[in-house]
Nucleic acid binder design. Structure first.
Length: 432
RNA sequence: GCGGUAUUGGUGAAGUGGUUAACACACCGGUUUGUGGCACCGGCACACGUGGGUUCGAUCCCCACAUACCGCCCCA
């Protein structure tokens, strides 16, 4: 094969694209109810937008960024995640100004890029749907956004959901805990896995997340961040939990949960589920949290934010067949033409029906009636119109209900002016 | 970035170091000058991911590369 798509990319073909449209339109409705409005930002940004926001030492920046130098010698990166670009736009367009409602709530959907090895549900170009809410420290924002995340997944009938939450506290908390953790891990340095030795240097919190059995054993007795929270941080987290309880939303506090991006603080959360598509292992579909310093980091005023990102590929792998089946396209009418003279006549009929609002298809390959009917059947046509020499002579078409097999001869004049009535009559007689 | 497995037609796949690469599904046509199913008949790969090598000869052996999938890292 001469050309193939770049590694880690996918063609979303008809049959699959319906699922994407379904997902996108469903979340749009939910966002609308929660009063989030769409924002569309560029798919590439100055490299620094991401390196500043994600943290210079984060894996995303150090090894997963899809970056290049453009012809004007600008260091550009394809966006690896959505938040940084939205924050940049928030700052650049001065959306923090007093004339804008707070919290300022936006959502986005689109492709993201990470240079990594593809696997099931992980690609170099992948898609996220995400939200950001700027300008409120209120725990209510945390809880509403988490509630919305849960509602989205519920609307897709996703089972076995688990909401995990944790807090990273404020900067003061983080500093104190960071130190405590390093002090605890240092004596065990030689026992740690190679990966974790590196983590200890770069980002000690990550050691908590290690999958290495020996690491897990060591980490079991590590200090908990909950013991290092400042009073304010404690207060925030307590309120978040209380509000979740009020809403009847179940959750687990997972003190070992960490974040790949450096900008998070206070509440962080993940919604996980298990599914056959992922070998029945637990995977994260939605992840997010609070990032109170990020706006400032990118040159804006001190203004807090809370958001999440959802992996669309992963979500689509979770859609069950019941949901998917409803998405089959339904063909209202198939027009069968017989004989040399039929094609111009059927063309006019097809166009007239389309203008009347029906989805209509026909044959273009001069195939026999039998083949045309087969095509109609395969495409699940509700009604078939047949036009041959006799019909043309009399200005009528045979109209057949494919479900019942009932066929009637009806004049062109009626078909081209009020097909809806004919169609509805057929459908109704089916119900009897 | 590291490790493993795989790569044959539109699809699922069988197969062998040597003249015609099974079988099934799908598709097209016919049996039925104009009607969806079934049956029967017929058609359907300049060829076995790409490039080298070994060999008298390779789809089958070796090497490299590409891609896919799985695991690690990391993450949505």
């Amino acid at each position: 094969m001469k050309y193939q798509r770049p590694k880690g990319t996918a063609d979303i073909l008809p049959g699959e694209s319906e699922k994407w449209q379904y997902v996108e339109s469903t979340v749009r409705q939910i966002f609308n109810r929660y009063r989030f409005a769409e924002i569309r930002t560029p798919m590439f940004e100055s490299y620094e937008v991401f390196s500043r926001s994600s943290g210079e030492t984060s894996d995303i920046v150090t090894k997963e960024m899809y970056d290049f130098e453009d012809k004007g010698h600008r260091h550009i990166a394809l966006r690896p995640e959505g938040t940084a670009g939205v924050v940049r736009a928030f700052v650049e367009n001065k959306l923090y100004g007093p004339e804008h409602n707070k919290p300022y709530k936006v959502y986005y959907m689109g492709p993201m890029f990470r240079y990594e090895r593809p696997q099931s549900g992980r690609q170099r170009q992948f898609h996220q749907i995400g939200v950001e809410a700027f300008g409120s420290d209120s725990p209510v924002v945390d809880v509403e956004v988490m509630a919305m995340a849960m509602e989205i997944l519920k609307s897709f009938n996703i089972k076995n959901m688990k909401l995990a939450i944790n807090t990273l506290g404020d900067p003061e908390t983080r500093k104190a805990y960071h130190q405590a953790l390093v002090d605890f891990l240092k004596p065990h340095f030689d026992e740690l896995s190679e990966d974790s030795k590196v983590r200890l240097e770069k980002n000690p919190l990550r050691v908590l997340d290690s999958k290495d059995p020996k690491d897990k054993e060591i980490v079991k007795d590590a200090p908990s961040i909950l013991d290092y929270l400042t009073e304010a941080a404690q207060q925030h987290f307590t309120t978040v939990k209380a509000l979740l309880d009020d809403l009847g939303i179940a959750y687990d506090v997972d003190t070992t949960m960490v974040r790949g991006l450096d900008y998070y603080n206070h509440t962080i959360f993940e919604v996980m589920t298990t599914a056959e598509a992922f070998g029945n292992k637990e995977i994260t579909v939605i992840a997010g949290g609070r990032y109170d310093g990020l706006v400032q980091e990118l040159g804006g005023p001190e203004m807090s934010g809370f958001g999440f990102g959802m992996g669309v590929e992963r979500l689509i792998l979770l859609l069950d067949e019941q949901v998917t089946k409803q998405l089959q396209d339904n063909l209202d009418v198939y027009v069968v033409g017989i004989g040399d003279k039929a094609s111009p006549v059927t063309l006019k009929l097809v166009q007239s029906l389309r203008k009347q609002g029906f989805s209509v298809d026909r044959d273009y390959l001069d195939r026999k009636p039998k083949a045309q009917f087969k095509a109609a059947d395969r495409n699940h046509a509700a009604v078939v119109l047949t036009v041959g020499d006799d019909e043309i002579a009399q200005s009528v078409a045979q109209v057949k209900d494919m479900a019942t097999g009932v066929q009637k001869s009806l004049p062109f004049a009626e078909i081209t002016t009020n097909f809806k009535k004919i169609y509805d009559d057929f459908r109704q007689s089916e119900g009897e």
